[in-house]
C-alpha cells in the first residue's frame, strides 16, 4: 500500500508536471523514441505470460509483446524496462505515467475502458474464467462448491465475476483474497481454499507448475463462467502512441498469416506487393510514426504470433490450434486489418 501512496503522489507530480501542456502535448511516441526505452507494465509471477526466472530475466507471452513494441518503435527488442505490477496497482501506474503501456493479462471491460482513463487496443489472447480443484476433490461443477472457500486475486475481473455468477446461481461461498499469486498459491495448495478461480490460461499454467513441482494432481472444471479478452492498454487521449503499439502487435499476426517467421524473414521470397509493403520493401508510408522496416524488426527479433505463442503458452499446456487464438483462416479469432 506504500507503493500505492507513492503512485498517488506520482499522479499529482509526474503526470502533473507534463499536464500543463495538456492536449497539444507531443505524443508519447516521441517521448519513448527520445528516451530510448519502453516502460512496460507486466506480471512477474504468472508462468507463461509474465514471470521472472532465477536469473532475474522477464519472460512470457505478455513480456514478448512488450519486446515487440520496443522492436517496432525503437528497432531494439531489448530496449524495454519491465515494471512488475500487481493487479490492483496496474491502472494507477498507467495513469501516473509510471509505464507507457500495460501488457499484463488485463481483461478488456467497459468500466476499465471508460473509468480508468485507459484505452484497450486489441485482444491478444481470448480467455475465459474457470475453476480449479485438487484431483482428489469430489467437486465436478461449480454447483458442488456451496459454502466453499474460493481462492481469488483481488482487484481482478475474476473476483467480480465470481461474486456475480455465484450470487446469481444462489451458491454461497467465501472468497479468500490475496493481492498476488505468491500468497494465493500456498493458500490453495495447503487447503485453505477448496477451489481456485482465475482465467483458464492462468489455472493451466499453475496446474502445470504445481504438478511439475511435485504437488498434488489438479483438475480444471469444464465450466467457463466468463469472457476474458486480454490485451495491451495505453492511456486515453494519445492516439499516436496507441496506433503505434496496436500496429506493432498486429504485425505479429499479419506475419503469421503471410507465413513469415523469424527464421525466414530475411530474404523472404515473394513477389506479392502486400508482403513486400509489409516488409518495408516498397516506397510506402502508412503515417503511423513507425520506421518503414518495423515489421521486419519485430519478426526477426521476437517472432510472429504463432512463434511467441508456441514459445510460452504451448509448454504450459495451452494448445494453439483449435483454440479461439488460432488464425481466422484456421477458424480462430485472430484477424487483423490489412497493412496497406
Amino acid at each position: 500500500m506504500k507503493r500505492l501512496i507513492v503512485l498517488l503522489v506520482g499522479l499529482t507530480l509526474v503526470v502533473g508536471a507534463c499536464a500543463d501542456g495538456g492536449d497539444n502535448a507531443s505524443s508519447l511516441l516521441d517521448t519513448v523514441q527520445a528516451r530510448g526505452t519502453v516502460l512496460c507494465g507486466v506480471n512477474d509471477v504468472l508462468p507463461g505470460f509474465g514471470i521472472v526466472d532465477d536469473a532475474g530475466n522477464f519472460g512470457g507471452f505478455d513480456v514478448d509483446l512488450c519486446r515487440v513494441v520496443a522492436a517496432a518503435v525503437l528497432g531494439n527488442a531489448n530496449a524495454v524496462e519491465f515494471v512488475p505490477l500487481t493487479a490492483g496497482e496496474r491502472f494507477t501506474a498507467l495513469q501516473s505515467g509510471e509505464i507507457d503501456v500495460l501488457i499484463r493479462n488485463t481483461t478488456w471491460t467497459a468500466t476499465r475502458d471508460g473509468q480508468e482513463g485507459s484505452t484497450f487496443l486489441l485482444t491478444t489472447f481470448y480467455d475465459g474464467q474457470g475453476v480449479m480443484v485438487p484431483e482428489a476433490s469430489d467437486v465436478t461443477s461449480i454447483e458442488d462448491l456451496a459454502d466453499a472457500n474460493i481462492c481469488v486475486l483481488s482487484g481482478t475481473t475474476t473476483e467480480l465475476n465470481l461474486t456475480s455468477v455465484f450470487n446469481s446461481r444462489g451458491i454461497p461461498f467465501n472468497p479468500v483474497v490475496y493481492a498476488d499469486n505468491t500468497g494465493l498459491r500456498p493458500a490453495y495448495e495447503e487447503g485453505q481454499c477448496d477451489a481456485w478461480t482465475s482465467d483458464v490460461s492462468q489455472l493451466t499454467a499453475y496446474k502445470a507448475a504445481i504438478e511439475d513441482e511435485g504437488g498434488a494432481a489438479q483438475r480444471i472444471l469444464s465450466d467457463v463462467i466468463s469472457k476474458e479478452p486480454l490485451g495491451p492498454v495505453v492511456l486515453d487521449g494519445d492516439s499516436g502512441w496507441a496506433q503505434a503499439v496496436e500496429w506493432a502487435i498486429m504485425a505479429t499476426v499479419q506475419a503469421w498469416e503471410f507465413g513469415i517467421t523469424s527464421g525466414n524473414v530475411t530474404g523472404f521470397p515473394t513477389d506479392d506487393d502486400n508482403v513486400r509493403r509489409f516488409l518495408g520493401q516498397l516506397d510506402f508510408e502508412a503515417g503511423l510514426g513507425l520506421p518503414s522496416d518495423f515489421a521486419v524488426q519485430v519478426i526477426s527479433q521476437v517472432g510472429n504470433y504463432e512463434e511467441i505463442y508456441n514459445r510460452h503458452l504451448v509448454p504450459i499446456g495451452l494448445p494453439l490450434s483449435g483454440s479461439p487464438n488460432d488464425l481466422w483462416t484456421n477458424g480462430g479469432l485472430m484477424y487483423v486489418p490489412p497493412y496497406r
Binding site: L4, L7, R112, T156
Partner: peptide
C-alpha cells in the same frame, strides 16, 4: 479497511 480499499481501487473505484 486498507485491504478492502485497495481491492475496491483495483476493481475500478477512483484511487485519490
Amino acid at each position: 479497511i486498507t485491504n478492502l480499499t485497495l481491492t475496491s481501487i483495483g476493481n475500478g473505484r477512483p484511487a485519490p
